[in-house]
Amino acid sequence: MNPSKITLGTIELPSYSATGWSFRGLVDWWGQTADKAEIVERPQGHGAFPARGSLRTSRAISFIANCINGSQAAVESGFDDLSSVGAEGPVLMTVETPAGASWRVVKVESVKPTHHRGGSRYGVLAVDLIAPDPRRYADGAWQQTGPAVQSGGLVWPAVWPLVWPVSGSSGRVTLQNPGRAPSPAVFRLLGPFDSALITCVESGARVGFNRPVPAGSVVEISGRHAVIDGQSDVSRWLQFREWTDVPGGESRTFQFDPVGGTAAFMQGKVDPAWW
């Protein structure tokens, strides 16, 4: 693998740069992490007992960051910039390759200088990260629907010239996951409506939101939480909470049923995921 750029929070690190930041030695971005299921050997038979499913451990990621600037003071300022990324919480890490970009949310474990001499304009830092979710994601495409609307149909005998009625709407979106690992569906509910219900057609799993949302406001339901207008946590108004992951290489269809909101819309997406 030959990544062309890493972005950690607000810091961009290309694979090569004559000045500023660059990186080398990216470790554990690809591949599968260890299985957490314990192997229990059969005491009176060959082999082990069958494992119940498979759960994967978190992922330890690391790379080397190089900083080249015009003076020792500039290099040390660069050290301070990179050391501040992720100091107060998880950040987004994106890796770009000729095949495209993929990302994870990571926790910065440490940023340690490994090479820097007094007066030098060159410095090296070892960056160690933990991804609690071991999956690697790419950005999915949003699909949109309004409430289900029945088509009026055309009444016969018809009078020419014909005027066709407005076509109906199923009130559904079909979300595909072209990745190889299961990935959760994400939804945006656009007001106005009094309450709304999202149902997975294949499984019947439901997620509801029981609070009026005015016109112009948006509720995003992601990661088992709900946020309105990108600011306030409104998770306490979620109902049912029957969360659905879309398996790798498959799709799921979701029905949108708002109450008191004929002008409401739902947007949904699945970010493709890989191990």
Rank of each mutant, 00 (worst) to 15 (best):
V85W: 03
E88F: 13
P90Y: 01
P90M: 04
T94E: 10
T94W: 00
P98Y: 02
P98K: 13
A99M: 11
S102W: 01
R104A: 12
V105M: 06
E109S: 09
V111Q: 08
V111Y: 00
H115F: 12
R117T: 12
G119A: 12
S120P: 01
S120T: 14
S120M: 09
Y122A: 12
G123L: 05
G123Q: 06
G123H: 11
L125Q: 03
A126I: 00
V127R: 00
V127E: 00
L129N: 01
L129P: 01
D133I: 10
D133M: 06
P134L: 01
R136Y: 00
R136I: 12
Y137Q: 04
D139S: 13
D139Y: 06
W142M: 07
Q143M: 14
Q143H: 11
T145M: 08
P147L: 06
A148V: 13
Q150C: 03
Q150T: 14
S151Y: 03
G152K: 11
G152A: 14
G153F: 05
G153V: 13
L154Q: 10
L154E: 07
P157E: 10
V159I: 14
V159S: 05
W160A: 14
L162G: 06
V163W: 02
W164E: 14
P165W: 08
V166T: 15
S169I: 02
R172V: 14
T174V: 12
N177I: 08
N177E: 03
P178V: 06
P178C: 05
G179W: 09
P184H: 11
V186C: 08
D194E: 15
D194W: 03
A196Y: 02
T199H: 02
E202M: 12
R206F: 01
R206Y: 01
R206L: 06
